[in-house]
Write a protein that binds this DNA or RNA. Structure first.
Lengths: 244, 244
DNA sequence: CGAGGGTTTGAAGTGCATCAAATAGTGTGG
DNA sequence: CCACACTATTTGATGCACTTCAAACCCTCG
């Protein structure tokens, strides 16, 4: 169970809050509630009235939307020290997606009204939010690009590259941050397709796959394969934020 | 050739500028430059240094990125009275995409520094930008969803629905805003696929297609077909902004 | 009328999804 | 420590959706 200091630290770690008013942050910390959730627990569903924002302390939260027949589209998977639910501030306080813990996780929740007030009264915070929103937008644009021009194997390769410290030279080991099934949905493909595409990636680049651990002698093997079908050049600096 | 009043009106029409300071807007108007561009003319390319933002007065501008081998991913197609290039403010003033006129168009350009200053000094403008950014983000989220769970025909149907005044009852006629080839790329499919998928949509819903004009007796025909594979219900209010 | 671009059609191939089933891996209680 | 139950992952077989390449058609505009 996190104590006050850890809560403060978590709030401080959120990108747009870093430079913001200390008083504002301490007010947030004072109103924070810690919650522990089990795997599969739903935090809210699409179109719910939004009264809280959440910060992930540990574990992972999947954001998604689904159709009446249950087909679902994963929008994002939120890692430790990131926030979600905040976009609803600009949308009549309605969550634009559902949120579910993908494993046992610890979160903190904060009243959304606090953040809303903060943004409206502290111009510096508003600017910081703008900047983080713009960054997110860029990621989404790239996501659309990837799904348009990269095939399944290349998308996996690209995903792996974003898990690496991008300036790294020489041999690298990567550990998948969560279930292969979840990675697959994050990349917009079926688990079966993921499995086969990973094998294809292995044959094409010579990477070494053992369970959830992937090893390669040189990052360039992957770069050549995946970044060929992308408008950006490796290292794709701005995307590192999407990593974990 | 647009005169001063038309320029002022165009600036005034941009969503985030509507409520902003009059002085700011007149300063913008004073610095505005009108430019006429031919079909195919490139305004800037991905990674160019960004010194201007643009507003479309007439015609259409395609935003896209492309890989070394020329494959391109269309990010958006900007209609009249909309702005583009402004996201670069938050990204070291580098354009994150290329821009090309898809037909003879009239634009105005504004120094990006003006907008940047405006956002930093006028909190109201910053909030308005935040709000419009959030709206755009929502659209992009939905775009990803569509490409994940809708097939080609459903995407076309959804696109058509967004061209309609969504509360409309009874018979409707729609005219495609631009080339079918361009619509296809906007929806992430090949022209051939578009052609065949449109025919399939016609067979499935009974809509009437004549060249670029599409007629139907009842919008519900399309709604049943397309919105089944979407997490949102018709009318999808917030997406109307993406229409034209 | 002819040229050229936009659009459609046909034929063939590829990639991914789907369904079904086998296998590997993990945690549980005995 | 083993056997069982359950889940994650892989594999196989098959089908459908979309792409690709090629060619025909259509429309518009000089």
């Amino acid at each position: 169970m996190p104590n006050k200091d850890e809560i403060t630290a978590a709030i401080q770690a959120i990108e747009p809050f870093k430079q913001s008013d200390e008083l504002f942050k301490s007010r947030m910390a004072a109103h924070a509630r810690v919650l522990s959730v089990e795997k599969g627990q739903v935090l809210f569903v699409n179109q719910d009235e939004a009264d809280k924002i959440y910060i992930v302390l540990s574990g992972w939260v999947k954001l998604f939307r689904e159709t009446l027949d249950g087909t679902q589209a994963v929008i994002d998977i939120i890692p430790k020290n990131h926030m979600f639910g905040e976009t609803s501030i600009f949308e009549d306080c309605i969550y634009p997606y559902s949120a579910e813990a993908t494993e046992t996780s610890e979160l903190i929740s904060l009243p959304i009204s606090l953040l809303k007030d903060g943004i409206e009264t502290d111009p510096k915070l508003a600017l910081a939010m703008l900047s983080s929103m713009a960054k997110y937008r860029k990621q989404q644009d790239r996501e659309i690009e990837h799904r348009t021009i990269q095939n399944a194997s290349q998308r996996i390769g690209c995903f792996l590259l974003r898990l690496i410290d991008q300036d790294q030279q020489g041999p690298v080991s990567i550990h998948l941050p969560y279930d292969k099934t979840l990675v697959a949905s994050r990349l917009g493909m079926q688990p079966e397709t993921f499995s086969r595409a990973l094998k294809k990636l292995k044959d094409a680049t010579g990477i070494d796959v053992k369970g959830a651990t992937i090893h390669m002698d040189d990052v360039q093997q992957l770069v050549r394969y995946s970044c060929a079908a992308c408008s950006a050049e490796f290292p794709c600096k701005d995307l590192k934020a999407s990593a974990y």
